[in-house]
Design a protein around this nucleic acid. Structure first.
Lengths: 148, 148
DNA sequence: GTCCTTGCAAATTCTTTGCAACCTC
DNA sequence: GAGGTTGCAAAGAATTTGCAAGGAC
């Protein structure tokens, strides 16, 4: 798939530009990241790599996470109670989140107008944006009824 | 100060409505929260309570955090690398964040238009909003020059 | 008096690190 | 071959929990 190729390229470029090395472990982790459509945490990523039949250690996953965030393959998203959570930044339309405090459901949405305002803001503050996350916490439709 | 009274009331109402109890420890923690203008984490909150001359245990602070978030006195904010971070939600105008990936600086801003759009979105999804956080990651003005 | 809370210390959970062997460039 | 990388197991950091004693209502 085209998108994946582009992304593995950008990862490899980053790695090389830093004088680091492409290893089978890192490629296995990248492959696992690509399979995620939504959010994942370190442990889920580790599990996904194992599921793919690759044997690596948890430490390697943890050590690779900064490389992937720095090469903008993934980014850290808000944590809502749990551990650090990441999200693949590739091949997915950017979106923001509505988090239900009751059932834990995550609704994703995308609003061009908000995106545009964010760009304006960055301009105003002369801030070079890399990515952003927005999340609204509250109660989803079905939890409002049962809300105590 | 008026604001503080209002907030300690809302905390006490919440506590009572749940059949829980107002304790000196909880009040000491609330008092410490009020002194924060910005962000803090569990340990900083614990330290602040001690600084105020109150002797409580770290476990009590951890156990109280959910109570304060549920009563909307504080809310969890995005974590950027560190531990869970909280922010007092009282007496402070709501704002969002620009996080510099290089120097770690946090710029705060507030944009009414974005707030308004968020409200619209919630309406559209029939989502009852409690609070929200938005953060834009990137490079601040001074770090762009030295950016490698 | 009942049931919630606290402090303590131990237990968990998540993440990082030291080190010797190993692999990439 | 030099220097980055890995796995392992141990170390660390943050947070949670069990339990007996204490406190709020």
């Amino acid at each position: 798939m085209k998108l994946e190729k582009i992304n593995s390229d950008s990862f490899e470029n980053y790695i090389r530009s830093k004088g680091l090395k492409i290893t089978p472990e890192r490629l296995a982790i990248l492959a696992a990241i690509v399979t995620f459509n939504g959010h994942f945490n370190a442990d889920e990523l580790y599990a996904a790599v194992l599921t793919n039949g690759e044997k690596i250690s948890r430490a390697t996953v943890y050590r690779s996470l900064p490389l992937f965030t720095e090469s903008r393959i993934i980014h850290e998203t808000i944590r809502c109670g749990e551990k650090s959570s990441y999200e693949s930044a590739i091949g997915i339309a950017h979106h923001d989140h509505l988090l239900c405090l009751k059932c834990g459901k995550v609704l994703e949405f995308m609003n061009h107008e908000i995106e545009r305002l964010q760009d304006e803001l960055c301009k105003k503050y002369q801030f070079e944006s890399v990515d952003h996350s927005m999340s609204i916490r509250g109660y989803c439709k079905s939890c409002q009824k049962t809300n105590d």
